[in-house]
Amino acid sequence: MSVVYFVVIVAAASLAAGLMGMVINPLIFGGTAADGLLIWFTSELVDYLVILPVILTMPRWRLPPRNQRRRELRSINWLLVAPVLTLLLGGLLGLVISGPGAISYLVPGLLWCALVYSLFVTAVLTLLCSVWTLMAVSVGYLHLGSDFDARHALQSFRIGVALMVLAPLAVASVMAARNELLSQLQHAASHDRLTGVLNRAGFMDRAEGLLHGATGRDRPFVALMLDIDHFKRVNDLHGHAAGDQVLAGFAQLASRCLRDSDVIGRLGGEEFAVLLPDATPAAAQAVAQRICDACATQVTSLLDGTQLVTTVSIGTAHAPSMPVSLEALLSAADEALYRAKQAGRNQVVMGNLVPAVVM
């Protein structure tokens, strides 16, 4: 719908320019009012359709660190260059085989770019293609088989360029809406709606991906199993709404104690799990203790004014090298969690070392 609104607004602005041309063309250039309307309308229509999408979709520029740029460059899928190569081939084909259909040689490449690239990149490419087409025709490189000295021939050409721009912009807008919807669906499928952290399936997928990516390397991992103490009592005494508030507050608290590379998820009920890549047992102990201490000091203000304080029990397990199964790592951490609860809760217990699996 944004493309529809955009076209309507651009058409209205171009018409306003055309109405000015109706007055100016006879007074200054000695032409007719009808020619002034058509000339000004078509010229402004092309300018607006070509330039405004680039301005309206321009993202914020933030140059990533040099090391990140190098990693991104190495990870580029060079097949993504194929749509741009198709555009170049379309332009070259127009130089070799000129004629009335040459203006459409760029359309397949533009549509492919709209399917693959972002809306901003597509807008930039349509700008470049439109400018190239207009300049190539004006200097005589691209011959469309039309006499532009004829009445309305140039205006017809400009309208053709404007319509050529609309198709990839519309397709790119549809793809942008589709990708945003898919991203929302993927987020909803992998995240817990109440706490905002990964759900069980999302945590398992993300953690398995980290472990598989470390296979063959000497990369340590630490798993934490966390369980909010006496959570059933919170639900029984204060209601499930209060329990939901405690869960959401704890998830936010635990997330603040972690690094961006760490993975946290809610496995079910009041039980959470954390995977710490590249962490030593001492560092994991410090992280777990920080979460435990922060939870014991965090006050949850319920809707009825009650000030509620909860604690958490945490078990850890360490895998010094890969490969190791996620199930084994979580099972060892769960055993340590059981010992923490048996020892009185509100504490961190270090679990056993999880050896690498012999392949």
Score class of each variant (00 low, 15 high):
V312W: 06
T280I: 03
L267C: 04
I264N: 01
L142V: 09
R71L: 12
A223H: 02
G202T: 08
S75L: 10
G21P: 09
G249K: 10
L115V: 04
L111H: 01
W61H: 09
I55K: 00
G101F: 08
L127P: 02
H212Q: 15
D35P: 00
A340F: 05
L353G: 00
V96L: 14
P323S: 03
W78L: 15
H152D: 13
L27T: 11
G265N: 11
I24D: 03
M225S: 12
V96H: 06
P281H: 07
L111I: 15
T297Q: 14
G305P: 10
T316Q: 13
Q184M: 12
S130C: 09
Q155D: 13
T215C: 04
V124T: 04
I291K: 01
A17T: 11
V131N: 00
T310E: 07
M225L: 10
D236E: 08
Q186M: 05
E208H: 08
F203W: 13
L224H: 11
P26I: 09
L276G: 11
F250L: 06
M225K: 05
N67K: 09
P277M: 07
R219E: 15
A12G: 13
T311Y: 01
P100Q: 05
R193P: 00
W61I: 11
E335K: 14
Y5D: 12
V46W: 03
V54I: 13
Q347Y: 07
D229A: 03
M350G: 05
V348A: 10
A33D: 03
V348E: 10
R193M: 05
S261Q: 14
R151N: 04
Q307L: 15
S301K: 07
E335P: 00
L125Y: 06
G21A: 10
L49R: 01
N199L: 03
I28E: 06
F250T: 02
G140N: 07
L85P: 01
G265L: 05
V274M: 01
L182Q: 13
T297M: 09
L73G: 05
L211F: 08
R233E: 12
L169P: 02
T316W: 09
R200A: 14
D236R: 09
Q342S: 13
L85N: 02
L111V: 15
V263K: 00
I9E: 04
Q155L: 07
L128S: 11
G351N: 07
S261D: 12
A201W: 03
V174I: 13
S183R: 13
L154S: 14
F6V: 01
S261P: 00
V324R: 04
L134V: 13
N179C: 01
L27Q: 13
F120P: 00
V121W: 07
V81F: 10
G243N: 09
D35F: 14
R345V: 10
L119Q: 12
R339G: 01
L127Y: 11
S2T: 07
G243P: 06
Y117V: 03
V8S: 12
